[in-house]
Structures are given as structure tokens and as C-alpha cells.
């Protein structure tokens, strides 16, 4: 990803897409508005994971823990305290980032699979606590009917809110990728030893990437609550974490918007295959296997290679 994918020429189509998304809700049935908003939330979540996976080369196996922790923080602030909405809105992602910092401190000492495993166990610890702490988190029932202020009361207004927050987050993530920090991260992914040798503090950079990624996962968690008005322990379960990971691989983890595309594909698969058959995971499994065999670079990676003027990121070293 050394070169720009978003130059001026490709900025115009993006602006057009954004404008189309702005005028969509009145034209679409309610259900589709909801699905698109869900794609935004899931897309932001996948993009946040890709900061550490595609760009950082880390095995962030339990990303959902941060997403769920933020969603729960937001939900608890709204239901159990009388603090205004905006405090919850700021506090929740910060809580996610702080948890990310603590877990990250332990994890960055390890490499690859051990990193992932330690993260799974720490994340599962959070899940187990949320799952069991009935008085506080509602246990396996979760929290439902979270009150929203008037300006977020309708689906359409939530849609706009989610769209705008997501767009800002994606822009910030893009700027981070283009910053010296982003390129250093890429260098660490491709060759940690050499980076260490030229004097880059590898672990500190990885830790910073984890904190940034968990912060944006927290933003996605807040947006999820805005959309669904409920939280439940499955938000922190490791199955969701693997699903987010799959979204990145599915869409193309060496491209900027690939994970977003992967998330959109996953959400639509679940929704529309789910309408016709209850065996949607079977279909998803088969699609995944086809993808592994025929599109190892992900859908976006494939599209960019086929039609784009720029090729996707360097693959020679990859994350292996």
C-alpha cells in the first residue's frame, strides 16, 4: 500500500457514493435502510481490525472483545447513569482503547500465534465476566430497549448519524495509513527485524496500532448500540472475532476498503441467504472455500488487480 489508492481521480466517485448514500433512506424501504446502516457499523469494525491485521501484521484474534466492551460501556452509561449521551459517546471508545492498551501490553511481548492465543484468552475473560455478571450486565440476556435522545429516535436519523460518524472515522483511518506512522507500521509488518535494526521501536508501534484499532472498534460498538438499541454477550464472543477476521480476508486485507467490502458481503449473505434458508453458514463456508482456492487476495484485491490502475499492496512477504 505504499502508493496512494485515493488520488484526486478516485476521490470524486467516493464523493458521489457518499452523496448517493445521503439521499438513499427516503427512497428505500425501512428494512434496507437498516441493512445498509448495519453494513456501515460492521464495515467500520472490519476496517478497524485491518489496521492491526492488514497493516500491522498482528494476529488480533479477539477484536470483538473491544467492540463489545465499548457497546456495553455505552449501554450501561445510558441505562444506569444520568450522564448525557455525548459523554457515553466519548467514554465508550476510550474504554475500549484502554482495554486495548492493557491487553496489548501483554500481547506485544509475544509473536504470531502466541499473540493471538493470549488475546483470545484475555478477551474470553472479559466475555465470561460480562456473560455471568447478571446484576450489572444482564448476563446472557443482555440489555434491551436502551433509550436514545430525540435526535436519534428514528431509523433515518440513526442512519445519518452512523453514516457521518463512519465517514469521519474512515477518513481518519485513511490519514493514519498515509502518515509516517502508517508506513512505519507497514515496514514492521514486512520486516520486523530490519525495522528493529534501523532503530524503530517495534513493540511500541504495534501497541499504538492496537490502541488505535481498538478505539475505532469502540466507535463501531457505539454505532451498533445507536442502531440496535440493545447489547448482548455474543458481541464479545470469539466467533464474532473470527467473523471479523474473515471479513478482512474476504474483502482483501491489503487494500484500504477491502475489509469494508468484506463486511458488506458478510452482512448481505447473512441477511439474504438467511431469508431463504436457515443454513446460511453452510453457504458462507462454501463461498469461503471457493474464495481460498480462487481469490486468495480477497474480492477487493482481485478487483484492483484486474481493473484498477494500481495494484494491491506488496505480497512478496505478506504476513507469513
Amino acid at each position: 500500500m505504499g502508493r496512494t489508492i485515493l488520488n484526486w481521480k478516485s476521490f470524486l466517485p467516493l464523493l458521489a457514493i457518499f452523496l448517493i448514500l445521503l439521499i438513499l433512506p427516503p427512497l428505500l424501504p425501512r428494512f434496507y435502510t437498516y441493512i445498509i446502516a448495519l453494513m456501515f457499523v460492521t464495515g467500520l469494525l472490519a476496517m478497524s481490525l485491518n489496521i492491526v491485521v492488514g497493516h500491522g501484521g498482528l494476529f488480533q484474534f479477539h477484536h470483538a472483545a473491544f467492540y463489545g466492551a465499548s457497546a456495553y460501556t455505552f449501554a450501561l452509561i445510558l441505562t444506569k447513569t444520568s450522564l448525557p449521551l455525548w459523554i457515553g459517546f466519548i467514554a465508550a471508545p476510550i474504554v475500549a482503547a484502554v482495554i486495548g492498551l492493557v491487553i496489548g501490553l501483554f500481547c506485544v511481548r509475544l509473536t504470531r500465534l502466541y499473540f493471538g492465543m493470549l488475546q483470545i484468552s484475555l478477551g474470553s475473560l472479559i466475555w465470561a465476566i460480562v456473560f455471568r455478571w447478571y446484576h450489572f450486565t444482564g448476563g446472557d440476556d443482555g440489555i434491551h430497549g436502551i433509550p436514545m435522545p430525540p435526535f436519534l429516535s428514528s431509523l433515518t436519523s440513526s442512519y445519518y448519524f452512523i453514516l457521518i460518524v463512519m465517514a469521519i472515522c474512515l477518513a481518519v483511518i485513511y490519514l493514519i495509513f498515509k502518515s509516517p506512522f502508517g508506513t512505519t507500521l507497514l515496514a514492521i509488518r514486512d520486516n520486523p527485524q530490519r525495522c528493529e535494526a534501523v532503530g524503530i521501536n517495534v513493540r511500541r508501534h504495534q501497541l499504538a496500532a492496537i490502541v488505535i484499532a481498538t478505539f475505532f472498534a469502540g466507535m463501531a460498538g457505539v454505532l451498533f448500540v445507536v442502531l440496535e438499541r440493545s447489547v448482548f454477550p455474543d458481541l464479545l464472543f470469539w466467533v464474532l472475532s473470527l467473523e471479523i477476521f474473515i471479513m478482512c480476508l474476504l474483502g482483501g486485507w491489503f487494500t484500504f476498503l477491502g475489509p469494508f467490502l468484506g463486511a458488506a458481503i458478510m452482512v448481505s449473505l447473512r441477511t439474504f441467504v438467511g431469508i431463504y434458508t436457515e443454513y446460511w453458514t453452510l453457504i458462507l463456508g462454501i463461498i469461503l472455500i471457493l474464495l481460498i482456492f480462487f481469490l486468495p487476495e480477497g474480492v477487493m484485491g482481485f478487483l484492483l488487480e484486474k481493473f484498477g490502475s494500481q495494484v494491491a499492496g506488496p505480497r512478496e512477504r505478506g504476513i507469513e
Binding site: L284, G285, L288, I289, I292
Partner: peptide, 10 residues
């Protein structure tokens, strides 16, 4: 890893 995940789903 992804393959074994797909296998799990199937």
C-alpha cells in the same frame, strides 16, 4: 486457518 474455519461452518 481460514479453511478450517470454513470447514467448521460447513
Amino acid at each position: 486457518l481460514l479453511f478450517t474455519f470454513a470447514l467448521m461452518l460447513i
